[in-house]
Design a protein around this nucleic acid. Structure first.
Length: 727
DNA sequence: TCCATTGACGTTTTT
DNA sequence: CGTCAATGGA
């Protein structure tokens, strides 16, 4: 068979990875080096050249987006159905296994997935019930503790607390939480992975079956795997499975979430016959940008070591703007974007990237003022909205009345006279008898433990749920959702809210009905024995849906550095490069590689840029209400200065004085009006060619401008005589 | 039950 | 400075 189409467009290193004859392969793929392409082509190679059955391939990623993209691209390249291939996220695949083998996994058939919000509520409630001081034992920390233990594969009984009362207390909370989830048939995200691992651990015959079936494993973003994911891969691979992992240790930015970069090193140790391939040719960024990235990341120790290079030119210099304060920074960035647009470039080619999400606000403000459309990544997701979760909670109760998280959510939403008192009686009863709350409620009714009024209210609620279930048994999914929203009277409940919010909430509920109506039960879910409702609910938890806006909208993109990973833009602004903000204060203080992770984050940011990279920092920034002077980020010093062109206004006006609040305070933007050009603008000169405006001086006919010419270097020119033109 | 005021707190986020 | 959650009064 002619396989040239699989190799033709690959470079040598990529080919080596795709055609490897070693049993295992570790592909160290630098940013923009075509790692997804390698993964896809390897997949196709296995099928078309090595004649591996698609049925035997498992490809895992971290995000649904990546999984979807992989399936799509594989489909395109192979021109055969990818349906029989297992392509998905770790969580998605674990979930599927648990649905198929719920009995062996010790789960009820109708178990539900608990998202982190629900998890938080449960834990908080539990800590209260225990009578613990919430200031001393914050639910957030307990949640973090539990998830961290699960990510390490530890169940409560396996944790040694060695007499440490602190640890003992956390373990106790973990135990209580787990018991409460088990009673309710709830499985949290970390539990999906842990249980999938335990499923094989405790059922060797099942493991054998999957080992012989899934003989070829492909793992994307390997540097982000945590202990349990790594253990799971190892277990599945066994002695005979073949594993190819792709990752970049320099882009490991999720250590704080349990990701173990060490897995990249361990892979070579734990697997035999591993071919290591480094992909270092970059197809994304210009030479200057890559050089900056290389120089920066070289400051990290313990790297596998890679050096990106490109066949392209050096490209435009990296620009650096030192703003007076965060307002000035935002103003500058927006002005640059206006120029970008003025050159006929598109808004969605530009991205503003920052360390903390709170930083987006000012940029939004200035973009709004300039009437430039923008989109902020990482807002609230569709299935996480309160009204959607309420509606889903009713559906979950229909599916599984023991789902305590769902019951607590809607037992009094809309208000139906079941107050805190009644609910705590139910909880108490549930705890004492180790029953889910639904059954505890029945018990309370039977034993007459409630005042008449509360009892009536409770019975109204319970029959509402029971009636819904019976009435809607044969409904289509869309009608079920519609029916639940009607019967629960959620719409009129939300209509009582202040106008603006209410409209979008009601609109969202309508959208939920649309989503349910359009939902098609995926074949693999049907295979795993799920019905429409169960599959829909699982999807809602596992992929909480689009953040907001459509990616293809022509908007300036605003996002944190974390969410920028995997994306690329012709024009990238990395803002807020100040010590304390980026690197973040908390990372500077804590040791243990935190600072190196920040540096990797910066590396990720830099390597998002294709043509233009613009860095900025503010000298004064208002944080938590008070102003603070900020040193430029140490990362700026780690980028060779010859790659950076500083754009620095030489204001005739005094620098804005700190804390000035007078309204007539001269804003940099109003000063700019007098100047024919703006900072950073590209201009051209008859003799010197084109260059960038980097500074101003004087006013009126004496205005001088400093231009850094691409060939002639930096020059001061009197605007009145120089005859500069915009380009 | 609902609204208003007060108080604590303040990375990064996908599943 | 802003947000969110908890508390307390009507």
């Amino acid at each position: 068979m002619d396989v040239s189409h699989l190799l033709d467009e690959l470079n040598e290193a990529q080919r080596k990875a795709v055609t490897t004859e070693s049993k295992h392969a570790l592909v160290l793929a630098g940013a923009g080096s075509g790692k997804t392409r390698v993964l896809i082509h390897r997949l196709a190679w296995l099928i078309q050249v090595e004649h591996v059955s698609p049925h035997s391939i498992l490809a895992v990623t971290f995000t649904n987006k990546a999984a979807g993209e992989m399936r799509e691209r594989a489909q395109d390249l192979l021109q055969v159905s990818t349906r029989s291939m297992w392509i998905g996220t770790f969580h998605g695949i674990a979930h599927r296994l648990l649905r198929m083998h719920w009995q062996e996994a010790g789960l009820p058939e109708n178990f539900q997935i608990l998202d982190s919000d629900d998890q938080h509520r449960i834990i908080r409630r539990l800590i209260k019930e225990e009578g613990l001081d919430e200031a001393h034992w914050p639910a957030r920390q307990a949640q973090w503790y539990i998830n961290a233990r699960k990510d390490e594969g530890q169940r409560p009984d396996a944790i040694e607390h060695m007499g440490n009362p602190m640890t003992a207390q956390w373990v106790r909370i973990y135990e209580l939480y787990q018991a409460s989830c088990d009673r309710a048939g709830l499985v949290d995200f970390a539990d999906l992975l842990l249980r999938a691992h335990e499923l094989w651990l405790h059922h060797p015959s099942l493991l054998d079956h999957y080992r012989s079936r899934l003989s070829h494993l492909l793992v994307d973003e390997f540097q982000d795997t945590n202990s349990i994911q790594y253990a799971w891969i190892r277990m599945l691979a066994g002695d005979d499975g073949s594993v190819l992992v792709v990752g970049d240790d320099d882009q490991s930015i999720y250590g704080w979430r349990g990701a173990q970069v060490e897995n990249v090193q361990h892979f070579r140790r734990d697997f035999t016959d591993v071919q290591v391939v480094k992909l270092e040719q970059n197809y994304r960024s210009s030479g200057n940008i890559l050089e900056a990235a290389n120089a920066l990341i070289a400051n990290n120790e313990d790297r596998m070591g890679k050096k990106l290079w490109t066949a392209d030119d050096k490209g435009a210099p990296i620009t650096l703007y030192s703003a007076f304060n965060e307002q000035d920074e935002a103003r500058f960035v927006v002005e640059q974007i206006e120029q970008w647009l003025g050159k006929g470039r598109r808004a969605n080619e530009a991205a503003i990237v920052y360390r903390t999400s709170a930083q987006s606000r000012l940029f939004e403000e200035y973009l709004l003022k300039a009437s430039i459309a923008y989109r902020v990544y990482g807002g609230q997701r569709f299935f996480e909205r309160a009204e959607i979760k309420d509606a889903l909670a009713y559906l979950r109760l229909i599916q599984n009345p023991n789902d305590d998280a769902a019951l607590e959510r809607v037992i009094n939403t809309p208000t139906r006279g079941i107050g805190q008192k009644t609910i705590s009686i139910l909880r108490l009863q549930a705890r004492e008898s180790s029953l889910p709350m639904w059954q505890a409620a029945q018990e309370c009714a039977r034993q007459n433990l409630l005042p008449a009024r509360a009892l009536t209210a409770l019975q109204v609620f319970m029959s509402l749920i029971t009636d819904m279930r019976e009435r809607m048994q044969d409904f289509t999914l869309g009608n079920q959702v519609q029916g639940v929203i009607e019967d629960s009277q959620l719409v009129s409940h939300y209509e009582k809210e202040p106008t603006e919010k209410m409209e979008s909430r009601v609109e969202n509920l309508r959208e939920l009905v649309n989503a349910a109506t359009a939902f098609v039960l995926p074949v693999e879910d049907a295979d795993a024995g799920m019905d429409d409702l169960q599959s829909f609910l699982s999807h809602a938890s596992l992929e909480a849906g689009e953040t907001q806006g459509e990616a293809w909208d022509d908007c300036v993109q605003l996002m944190t550095l974390h969410s920028a990973k995997g994306l690329e833009f012709p024009m990238v602004f990395i803002v807020g490069l100040e010590d304390g903000l980026f690197p973040h204060q908390r990372s500077v203080m804590e040791s243990g590689g935190r600072l190196e992770e920040e540096r990797r984050l910066c590396y990720v940011g830099i390597t998002r840029a294709r043509e233009h990279l613009c860095l900025s920092h503010a000298e004064v920034r208002r944080m938590f209400g008070s102003e603070s002077h900020c040193r430029p980020s140490r990362f700026l010093n780690e980028i060779p200065s010859e790659l950076i062109q500083e754009i620095r206004p030489r204001m005739q006006v005094q620098r804005p004085w700190v804390g000035a609040r007078s309204p007539e305070y001269p804003k940099p933007s109003s000063i700019k009006q007098d100047w024919p050009f703006s900072l950073g603008e590209t201009v051209s000169h008859k003799k010197f060619g084109s260059g960038t405006v980097i500074s101003f001086e004087g006013s009126g006919e004496h205005t001088r401008v400093q231009v850094n010419f691409n060939h002639a270097g930096a020059k001061w020119l009197v605007v009145a005589y120089a005859n500069l033109t915009r380009s």
